[in-house]
């Protein structure tokens, strides 16, 4: 029996939605689990069969992580845990540090990266080979850089400091910034700039009035992409600054001990807190994101 084209198309459509739904479930489940766990009382963290949506929702995890971190837990059962974690937790300081470090490093990377990308796109200031070398920089496993960098950082006093991490994050995300913003700048036809110039606009005026508005969405997308990377960076932060300068991923890792295992509820509550700022930034700039990530905003 043969199917008509419409039938075939319908079957394909059903199949596509089926696959997409499965994929969505796989991707969304950890997020759901994180939010769900953050409201669970401690006895449900490990319970079997698992509790998907708790009937004993509590804010205790949030309170402990974000407000009572210097108090002993009132819950007798987790008193031990509270003791263990108590002296080390500085979530608000970590939030401040992360905001400062990721924010500044990302801004610098996008700023310098896009200027560099403009030069590469329009004046070939870096050869194709150099551009690839720049990208290869990202291929180096960070761990191999740790030893020389920490030695060097110790000498010049950048170890365990905010500028130390900002510089490192800025440098490691610069390749992404250059490559991503270049792809957006390449899309602005050269003739459009020439048109502005011959109509009397200066170079700066041309960039400001013609190029920048056309790549703005792309730069915003680049900004968010790099912000996500630096916001959640763990390894460099762990090894280059652990005592004085604490960032959120490091703070998160502290809710586990060698004997107690992971303190899931607390970690989940902290994770939700770490995620919210990124979601918030994403919502603020969402009109740019759809255009920026679709890589095709200039209609010719």
């Amino acid at each position: 029996m043969s199917m008509t084209m419409t039938q075939k198309r319908n079957v394909f459509s059903v199949f596509r939605y089926f696959v997409l739904t499965i994929w969505l479930l796989i991707v969304a489940f950890p997020i759901f689990w994180m939010v769900s766990t953050s409201f669970k009382p401690d006895r449900e963290w490990f319970s079997w069969p698992p509790v998907y949506i708790t009937e004993n929702a509590t804010l205790q995890n949030y309170l402990t992580v974000w407000t009572d971190f210097n108090e002993y837990s009132t819950n007798e059962e987790t008193k031990e845990l509270g003791q263990y974690t108590q002296s080390l937790q500085r979530p608000w300081e970590a939030l401040g540090n992360s905001t400062l470090i990721a924010g500044i490093a990302t801004l610098l990377a996008v700023l310098f990266g896009s200027v560099l990308a403009y030069g590469v796109s329009r004046h070939q200031i870096l050869s194709e080979k150099r551009m690839f070398q720049l990208l290869m920089l990202r291929m180096v496993p960070p761990i191999v850089l740790i030893a020389p960098i920490s030695l060097w950082y110790r000498q010049i006093g950048l170890l365990d400091s905010i500028p130390g991490l900002v510089i490192l994050y800025f440098l490691t995300s610069l390749p992404y910034a250059v490559w991503m913003s270049k792809s957006f700048i390449d899309e602005v036809p050269r003739e459009m700039e020439h048109a502005a110039e011959i109509l009397g606009a200066s170079r700066w005026r041309t960039i400001w009035e013609v190029v920048l508005p056309l790549v703005r969405s792309g730069l915003v997308a680049t900004f968010l992409f790099i912000l996500i990377l630096t916001w959640s960076e763990y390894l460099l932060a762990l090894l280059l600054s652990k005592t004085d300068v604490l960032t959120l991923p490091i703070e998160l890792s502290k809710y586990q001990g060698s004997t107690e295992g992971r303190v899931y509820g607390r970690q989940a509550a902290l994770s939700v807190g770490i995620t919210i700022p990124l979601v918030f930034v994403g919502l603020l700039i969402r009109k740019h994101l759809a255009r920026g990530f679709s890589f095709g905003m200039v209609r010719r």
Partner: peptide, 17 residues
């Protein structure tokens, strides 16, 4: 270019979108 008293029309129109 802007100091040459020229006007130019491009193949791609090059309008500012």
């Amino acid at each position: 270019p802007r100091d040459r008293d020229l006007g130019m029309v491009f193949q791609s129109h090059a309008l500012f979108p």
